[in-house]
Amino acid sequence: MYILWAMLIFLIPYLVLIVRGPTVWDRILGMSLVSTKIIIIVIIFSSLNHLDYLTDFAIIYVLLGFIVTFFITTFLVTRKKREK
């Protein structure tokens, strides 16, 4: 149970990083950090309540977070190169 609370409290500085961060890259970094943290929350939740099928959710978050981060960064780089 203490792990769940620790993870939930760790969400707050990441949100501060996302909202405050001086560059775009900080925000994208914060997004990937939040997705990792949510994977851990899902696993802990499923192990606490003995729900095995919830580990599917963790795989979903891993794959989708990766795809979204790759998409946003590649599009930002493409834009920068085009406008130079």
Partner: peptide
């Protein structure tokens, strides 16, 4: 199942950091 997930995370998570750092440097 958790070990299966662990393998995926072991491949993907360093990759995400690599993408962000590299695209930040390139732009």
């Amino acid at each position: 199942r958790v070990v299966l997930l662990l393998v995926l995370m072991f491949i993907i998570n360093p990759m995400v950091t690599h993408i962000i750092a590299r695209s930040a440097y390139e732009s």
